Computed example of a mutant assay.
Amino acid sequence: MGKTAPPVRRGRRPMSDRRRALQRLEISRAAIRLFREHGVAATSGEDIAGAVGLSARTLWRWFRTKESCVEPVLSLATDAFTASLGRWPDGRSLDEHLLTDYRAPVDSGPDDAELVFAVLRLSRAEPALRAIWLVVQERAEPVLAGILAERLGRACDDVAIRVQAAALNAALRIATEDIAAATADGQEPPIDDLVERLSAAVRAAGHGVLDRTAHPR
Rank of each mutant, 00 (worst) to 15 (best):
A56D: 12
I48H: 13
A104W: 10
E96I: 05
L99Q: 14
S68K: 01
D47S: 15
T43A: 05
T100H: 13
G53P: 10
G45T: 04
R92I: 10
A56G: 11
V73S: 04
R64E: 15
S75N: 09
V70R: 02
G39N: 08
A42G: 08
D95E: 15
V70A: 11
A51P: 05
V52G: 09
L25P: 06
A41P: 03
T100V: 15
R33H: 03
A31H: 00
G45Q: 06
L98R: 12
P72R: 05
R61I: 05
A51I: 04
Q23I: 01
G53C: 11
R20D: 13
E67M: 00
Q23P: 00
L54C: 10
S75M: 08
A51M: 06
R87N: 04
K66S: 02
A83T: 14
L54M: 15
I27F: 01
L98T: 11
R57N: 11
E96V: 08
S75H: 04
G39M: 07
A49C: 08
A80F: 07
T58K: 12
T78N: 03
A77G: 01
L76R: 02
W88A: 05
A77K: 00
E67H: 07
R87M: 06
R24D: 08
E26D: 14
G53F: 11
V70P: 01
T78D: 04
L99W: 11
A30C: 05
Q23N: 03
D101C: 13
E26Y: 02
D95V: 10
T78R: 03
K66F: 01
A30N: 02
D107M: 10
R64D: 14
E37Q: 12
A83Q: 12
A77Q: 04
R24L: 10
S93P: 05
L59A: 11
I27L: 04
L76M: 10
G50L: 05
S55A: 15
V106G: 00
L54H: 13
S84G: 09
E96N: 12
S108Q: 15
T100A: 14
S93N: 10
